[in-house]
Design a protein around this nucleic acid. Structure first.
Length: 766
DNA sequence: CATACACTGGTTTTT
DNA sequence: CCAGTGTATG
């Protein structure tokens, strides 16, 4: 068969293993993705139809990548293979099997925000005081209960713990609200699916009979509900292959249970175990550090990564004055590596998203292209969530979280008192929008407010009536129009940027290909499919690693990725390990595993940085080095202080923020990456040659990029011609802002001028 | 009764 | 540094 690339004996063993449970304990960088893809390809190659295989991954991106690689091995796409996250799998099953459930197939998925709104409503209904009991805490306890598969009726109401009592009261009301709204929250996608599979024998047998092979990646980060889902799907045949590494379990705080992987052999008797400890990724010094660090954890299966690579630079521990110096030093170091590495080879990893800012500023100042994964997510921006709530409401008028979010935005004179009366006046079996539709009959609602509510409800219903037939783009446009959302946004602070973001959302809707959605309800409109799609998107799903930019992300987001050069920043007490984690052995060991994950992302060079002073949550303070830094071995580690040397050069550039720079700031690397060189220093490297030739000479010693002639480059200069995926061709007329926030004013040939943020629109040169 | 503005407190990581 | 809440005003 063709499906096996070079595999070592252990990898081959895992790929060739036949029927029955298989546990692959795969150390970092040991080629587990290769094993998974090769195994699936082998199964297909030997005659197992792809639709008999289920592959569960941690992110949608990983699923897509795996499917692509299997296709490459086989020479054709594995049609019918199911792959995706547990949440996506759950959503898909819940839609397919909606007839036996208490939500129909058009259900809405509530994120944490929506869910919190529903919890507040529930607390209101059962009379639990939100000032005394934090709705967020209640929500999180309900989520935890769902993760343990504890139902609304199963919580102890007579317990000593008062919060638990309140949660026990709120949980059933919360469930009733979700049901009324035809919504599932994130946790339901797992727990409800498990209940479906465990309680409905016919359903379980049908899927266990369909998925003759179940494969699960990152098994160490599954929670109890996910474990039970796997168990139900594998019931009967027992062909489960799980891959993971207990040392990389970093989601305990979210309910993940390392016990799942540690107890696999007990849960699936007769399991064959394969250990992958040969590391193909990192140099010896990096692995020595990684092994030394993780060896200090007590709760783990002993193992040691062995490198197959020789040589390697020592690991650098760098101390700087403050977070600004940390970032500036790192960026200069990145520039200094330009003879060996591209910006796209580099990742800066940190514990909290808030740490990204100084790095962004330094990178922007030096003109180094970068991309951020996570942080303030596009789909979580206020204006985006508001517009999405409108669309959600139009698709599902029963969605009360969406209703509450937008009922008084833009202002239409519905304050908290009117809203309270509306809630109180809700008729039996009625949702809020229906009540709003006849608000004039609801006692004590003033006439003005009632008219306003009725008009609002009427408009939502009108749009709902056409939403199934019309293209998503048209419904979205009509919705913006009908509620004057664009006007409302433009009048707010940062209005232009908000409007631009919403335009990008519209562009995303226009680009969306509904044919890619599997198992959608037959009578679902396009807009509904779009909303289903974005509900399960994660930050890392939007990340395209093939580009030539420095990557900035949290350590959690970096799981499963690798980079030639890695900076782990902010190694300070209280920051990493974070908070009070030092006080609890479990938490401390989880932070240490997170550190281990960070270290093992690096192929060739690893930097660990910390600062003496750091501004945190608005107030400054002294920072002391992380205890992790005391756990490193002496030898392949170099410690140094990045004082003020080299600062002169950076200072000289610091004040310079001319218009020439802005082209670079907004520069978006394209997909071809890899074959360009870049250098630093006066006179080194010639200008990039793409564009309209309007480059001025860059006369100081800045970082420069010299792209090969084959590379498409977007330089974003006024006058240049570009192609926008939904608006077509146009000419750049203006440019403002910086970094990800850069906005271009583009005059489109189709007519009309609009502002576009290249950070969200896939602009290409004409 | 709605809204604008000042203040306070809490503060990770994310499918 | 942010969001969510309390107070003054229209």
């Amino acid at each position: 068969m063709s499906a096996a690339p070079e595999l070592n004996p252990e990898q081959r063993e895992a790929v060739e293993h036949g029927e029955g449970p298989l546990l692959v304990l795969a150390g970092a960088g040991s080629g587990k993705t290769r094993v998974l893809t090769a195994r699936i390809a082998r199964l297909i190659d030997e005659g197992v139809p792809p639709w008999h295989i289920l592959a569960v991954t941690f992110t949608n991106r990983a699923a897509g990548e795996m499917t692509r690689r299997i296709g490459a091995l086989l020479g054709e796409p594995p049609a019918g293979l199911w792959s995706g996250t547990f949440h996506a799998l759950g959503a898909r099953l819940l839609r397919r099997e909606a007839d036996v459930l208490d939500r129909d197939a058009h259900f809405t998925i509530y994120d944490r925000d929506d869910s919190l709104r529903a919890v507040k409503m529930a607390m209101e209904e059962v009379g639990v005081d939100p000032d005394r009991w934090s709705p967020a805490a209640v929500r999180s306890r309900i989520g935890a209960a769902k993760g343990r598969l504890t139902g609304p009726g199963d919580l102890e109401t007579e317990t000593f713990d008062l919060l638990s009592r309140r949660v026990a009261e709120v949980y059933p009301a919360y469930e009733a609200i979700l049901r009324r709204c035809n919504a599932y929250d994130f946790d339901d996608l797992l727990s409800r699916t498990v209940r479906l599979l465990e309680e409905e024998d016919e359903v379980r047998e049908r899927y266990a009979g369909r998925f003759l092979h179940v494969l699960v990646d990152e098994y160490q980060d599954t929670n109890h509900a996910q474990y039970r889902m796997v168990r139900a799907l594998a019931s009967g045949h027992g062909n489960v292959c799980v891959v993971g590494d207990d040392d990389q379990s970093i989601y305990g705080w979210r309910g993940a249970d390392v016990g799942n992987i540690l107890d696999f052999e007990r849960d699936f008797p007769g399991a064959h175990v394969v250990r992958l400890e040969r590391n193909y990724r990192s140099t010896a010094p990096i692995l020595q550090v990684a092994n030394a660090v993780i060896a200090r954890n007590t709760a783990r299966k002993p193992k040691e990564l062995r490198t197959v690579r020789g040589g390697g630079d020592p690991v650098q521990v760098v101390r700087t004055a403050d977070e600004r110096a940390e970032a500036e030093w790192a960026v200069r170091e990145i520039a200094g590596l330009s003879d060996r590495f591209h910006p796209g080879d580099v990742a800066v990893l940190y514990r909290t998203n808030a740490q990204s800012r100084p790095f962004e500023e330094a990178l922007r100042r030096e003109g180094v292209p970068y991309r951020i994964v996570g942080g303030v997510r596009f789909y979580e921006r206020r204006e985006i969530k508001d517009v999405l709530a409108y669309l959600q409401l139009v698709v599902n008028p029963a969605d009360e979280a969406a209703f509450l979010r937008v009922v008084n935005w833009p202002r239409r004179g519905i304050g908290s008192v009117t809203l309270g009366r509306l809630l109180a006046g809700r008729g039996e079996g009625e949702n809020l929008l229906e009540t709003a539709g006849h608000a004039a009959e609801v006692p004590e609602i003033p006439a003005g407010g009632a008219r306003s509510l009725e008009a609002f409800a009427g408009a939502v219903r009108e749009l709902h009536a056409v939403q199934r037939e019309e293209p998503a783009r048209a419904v979205a446009r009509a919705c913006l129009e009908r509620f004057s959302l664009r006007t409302a946004l433009s009048e707010e602070e940062d209005g232009e940027e908000r409007v631009a973001n919403v335009d990008e959302l519209l562009a995303g809707i226009a680009e969306f290909d509904p044919s890619g959605v599997e198992d959608a309800p037959e009578d679902a409109g396009e807009l509904e499919l779009f909303l289903q799609h974005v509900a399960l998107l994660s930050d890392i799903d939007r990340y395209d690693p093939e580009r030539g930019s420095v990557s900035l992300m949290t350590l959690h987001n970096a799981k499963g990725l690798e980079f030639p050069v890695v900076f782990v920043a902010g190694l300070e007490r209280g920051l990493f390990p974070l908070g009070r984690a030092e006080e609890s052995v479990e938490e401390y060991e989880e932070e240490r595993r997170l550190f281990y994950v960070g270290v093992t992302r690096a192929r060739d060079r690893l930097y660990l940085t910390h600062a003496d002073r750091r501004w945190r949550a608005g107030s400054g303070g002294e920072s002391s080095p992380s205890p992790f830094l005391d756990e490193l071995p002496e030898d392949p580690v170099e410690r140094r202080r990045a004082g003020w040397a080299g600062r002169a050069a950076s200072g000289r550039r610091a004040g310079r923020a001319g218009s020439r720079d802005s082209a670079w700031r907004g520069k978006r690397d394209d997909g071809s990456g890899g074959d360009f060189s870049w250098r630093i220093g006066p006179g080194s490297g010639k200008k990039r040659s793409a564009g309209s030739g309007s480059d001025e000479e860059d006369d100081d010693g800045g970082v420069r990029y010299d792209y090969g002639d084959t590379q498409e480059v977007l330089s974003f200069e006024p006058g240049e011609r570009i192609v926008h995926p939904s608006f077509g061709t146009g000419t750049i007329r203006g440019l403002e802002g910086a970094g990800r926030a850069v906005k271009l004013t583009i005059e489109f040939d189709e007519g009309g001028t609009r502002k576009v943020m290249p950070a969200y629109a896939e602009l290409r040169p004409e």
